[in-house]
Structures are given as C-alpha cells and as structure tokens.
C-alpha cells in the first residue's frame, strides 16, 4: 500500500493559499503597528500602511526619556515574576502534599483546587475590591499579585498533581530510607523531576498575567504603580492622540512576549494547549 503522503492531493495549492492568506492577516496588524510607529503624526493619516517616508523616532524617544513607561515595564515584570514564582512554589508544595497524603481529606483539598478551574475569578471582583481596600493594598502594584497567584493555583495543582502521581515510588523510597525528610525529598528530588511540568505551568500563566488589563484597571490608578498594559490605556488623552507615540509603546509592550514566544514557540503552544484534550 502506498504511504498516505504519496497520495496526490488536488487541494494542496488551495491549502497553502489559505494558510498564506491567514498568515498575511496575522502579520498585517503587526506590520501596521510597527511601520506606523516610525511615521510622523500626520503621515499616518495620509498613508496608513506604506513604509515611512521619513523616519520619526520621536515616539520611541518619548517612551524612554522622562516617561513613566520604563517604570510601568518594571512593575509588570515584578508582578509577573513574583506571581509565577509563588504559583510554582505553592502549587508544587500543595500538589506534592495532596499526592503523598493518602486520605480522603487530601482528595477533597485536591477537588477544592480543581473546582477553581471552572470559575473565572472576575466573578469575585466586587469583593476583591473591598478586600484590597481593607488590606490597604488598593492603588499598589502588588495588589494584583495575590489575585494572580490564586488564579494560577488551580491549574498548577491540577497539572503538577498528575505529574507527581506519575513519579515511580522507588525514586523517593530510596531517599526515605536514607532518612531524608519530606521537605528534603521535595526540594532535592521532586522539584528536579517535575521541571518540565513546572515549565508548562509557568508558560500557561505567563501570558495571561503579563497581558491582564482587568485587575490593574480596577485596583490601580496612581501613575507610579501602573502595569504596562494599564499604562497603555493612558496614552489616549482626553483631547488628543499621537498615534506614532501610541504605536511605539504598543510595539514595545509586545516585545518581551514575542521574543519569548518565538524562541520557545513549541513549548508555548504545547504549554497552552496540551492536556486540554486529555479528557
């Protein structure tokens, strides 16, 4: 029998045409964004998608000189890194505990976490706002961190639980006989074994946290405390808009994620979609 690849496919040109057209559709907005960020304010209106006639670097200059955007960027970085670190640490500890604790309580705790997967945390915004006021965290960058951690824990516990359950008992058994305590086993054996799963969890949470608008929007007003995405909304002043400046900021705000994505596209796609079809 012929291998399937040898079967002639009359549709092939159409398939490539379709995918190429879609690729154009993906790149076109990005092209519009980057190309226009180098144009002068009025050129954008006269020629919205050609190459710039004269390069205007003012948009980028204003981002770096005497502007709050580096600060926004650092705030976003702080929020993302801190949230991810806490999600991974707390999530793996909890998953390990749930796996090793052979009792119906642990199953309940596990299910309690898993139940969070079906509930979007936005539903709780009204009360979260009140909590932030009470904790005195309102209008502070760090206010969003506990929310992101809570939001990321269900998926972390769920993924890591399965992974840890799959670790053969012999691997930890030996350490147990050597007299290592559970914490020691966790830090010296488990963590290194679940590294790939930790990466998946990190990637899964990275994109939504970096790109989140909702919680910064409702918690933070003060200039110095804004995240990058919230800062972007500030670009639209009450009375005037300078598109070249806006597009420069938009372009820069995409850079970190795009770089990460392009260098680890496979992990990203797998991290974001794998397991989804497991059920």
């Amino acid at each position: 029998m012929r291998p399937p690849s040898m079967i002639r496919d009359p549709m092939k040109p159409f398939k490539y045409l379709l995918l190429s057209l879609w690729s154009l559709l993906v790149f076109f907005p990005l092209w519009t964004m980057v190309v226009n960020s180098f144009k002068f304010k009025n050129d954008i209106y006269l020629d919205p998608f050609g190459l710039p006639k004269a390069i205007n670097l003012l948009g980028y200059k204003t981002v770096f000189e005497n502007s709050p955007f580096p600060r926004y960027f650092l705030n976003s970085l702080l929020v993302t890194v801190a949230s991810l670190a806490l999600i991974l640490l707390f999530g793996s500890l909890a998953a390990y505990g749930c796996v090793r604790w052979k009792s119906r309580y642990s199953k309940w705790i596990y299910l309690f976490f898993v139940a969070g997967l079906t509930v979007p945390i936005k539903i709780g915004s009204v009360n979260l706002l009140q909590i932030m006021i009470k904790l005195g965290l309102l209008d502070r960058t760090i206010s969003v961190i506990p929310v992101y951690v809570a939001m990321g824990l269900p998926i972390a516990v769920f993924t890591l639980y399965e992974f840890i359950k799959g670790i053969p008992g012999e691997l930890t058994e030996a350490a147990l006989i050597d007299g290592a305590g559970p914490l020691k086993i966790y830090s010296s054996i488990i963590v290194s074994l679940i590294r790939p799963a930790l990466a998946t969890v990190a990637i899964f949470n990275l994109v939504p946290i970096w790109n989140d608008l909702w919680f910064p929007l409702i918690f933070i007003r003060q200039d110095s405390q804004r995240t990058l995405i919230l800062g972007v909304t500030r670009l639209f002043g009450e009375y005037q808009t300078d598109w070249s400046k806006i597009l420069a900021v938009l372009s820069l705000s995409c850079v970190p994620v795009i770089i990460l994505y392009l260098t680890m596209a496979k992990q990203f796609i797998e991290g974001l979609t794998s397991g989804a079809v497991k059920g």
């Binding site: 909890a94 090793r100 309690f112 969070g116 709780g124 915004s125 009360n127 979260l128 809570a150 559970p182």
Partner: peptide, 30 residues
C-alpha cells in the same frame, strides 16, 4: 501523614481561599 502534608498544602490553600474562593462566594452574597 495528616498534619504534615496539610502543612504542604497550606500556603496554596490560604491564598487560593482568601483571594479566589471567598471573594467569589462573597460576591454572590453581596
């Protein structure tokens, strides 16, 4: 077993309960 493993799950449980489970339920109450 028991107390020790619960301790492992505790940090996650606390954050998750305080900033997700409780706010969601509380928002419904509100």
């Amino acid at each position: 077993s028991g107390a020790l493993w619960l301790l492992f799950a505790l940090p996650a449980l606390l954050v998750y309960a305080a900033f997700m489970a409780v706010p969601v339920i509380n928002s419904m109450r509100l």
